[in-house]
């Protein structure tokens, strides 16, 4: 589904990403973790081409991001993204935030988009907040809207960039529950997070990045119990 081969990125001298190699299969949930500034968000943002890289290749769904003929805009319809700080459009209501992309990008009727959006909002317990603007919603509610905005496009992959880092503990649980059920429904998920409970429950692969390099990767047992590198052991000691 996603193949990342020898990807390197640098802004100046220090490399932000060094020879990253990752393969993500369909229906998998992959967690990327690592200390701040390690390049994990950058890697995630390379997958939908919002961030550029200088070397290597990323292939999503058989389409190479390197190919100048690739229509990145079209590709992104299949890749939803959820941001740490929600990134909602502050001048639109929750419903408008969710509906604008399918209406404008997929040419859905307003009626169809709003119907689908309402189904989602009801599911996540926000039916009564459909007409609220982002600034009137709590962090957890905003992130629910942001997830709805990504999911209404019916993407094959959803990228989560630290979706719970800006939330309070109670809201975190609500968002993680949504993500877990999404993962269990078979969505391909790539998630940058420090929520190891989430990783334990649904991650097929955990990637540990430090200073732009993949230090270690493996399934839950392999990563948490049979941790190989000292660097990863140190990191786990800090966050667990």
């Amino acid at each position: 589904m996603i193949t990342i081969t020898d990807v390197c990125k640098w802004y100046g001298k220090p490399e932000v990403l060094k020879n990253i190699n990752v393969t993500i299969e369909r229906n998998q949930t992959v967690v990327i973790c690592g200390p701040s500034g390690s390049g994990k968000s950058t890697l995630l943002r390379c997958i939908n081409g919002i961030e550029k890289y200088q070397k290597g290749e990323i292939i999503v769904n058989g389409i190479s991001l390197n190919d100048p003929k690739t229509d990145l805009y079209k590709l992104r319809r299949n890749i939803g993204m959820v941001f740490q700080h929600f990134a909602l459009y502050p001048h639109m209501t929750a419903l408008q935030n969710i509906c604008i992309a399918p209406i404008k990008v997929l040419n859905w009727s307003k009626h169809k988009a709003e119907k689908e959006a309402m189904v989602f909002l009801e599911q996540v317990g926000m039916g009564s907040n459909a007409q609220a603007h982002p600034a009137e919603l709590s962090g957890g509610q905003q992130q629910r809207v942001a997830i709805g905005r990504a999911l209404i496009m019916k993407p094959q992959i959803v990228l989560f960039d630290e979706p719970t880092s800006a939330l309070d503990p109670e809201a975190i649980k609500g968002i993680l529950d949504i993500m877990i059920s999404l993962a269990k429904s078979g969505m391909t998920i790539v998630c940058v997070t420090h929520e190891m409970g989430f990783a334990k429950e649904v991650a097929d692969n955990i990637i540990f990045i430090d200073k732009g390099e993949i230090i270690e990767q493996g399934a839950y047992e392999e990563f948490f119990i049979n941790t190989k590198t000292d660097r990863a052991k140190d990191f786990l000691k800090q966050i667990l």
Binding site: R77, Y89, I100, R149
Partner: peptide, 27 residues
């Protein structure tokens, strides 16, 4: 307008024109 608002619009598959026309300019 914050960069992430531009990025969010692009991440939903909007072209740059659609992003400006429907999200950024109205804001």
């Amino acid at each position: 307008i914050e960069t992430m608002e531009y990025e969010a619009a692009l991440s939903t598959g909007m072209t740059r024109y659609q992003m400006y026309r429907h999200v950024i300019i109205p804001h």
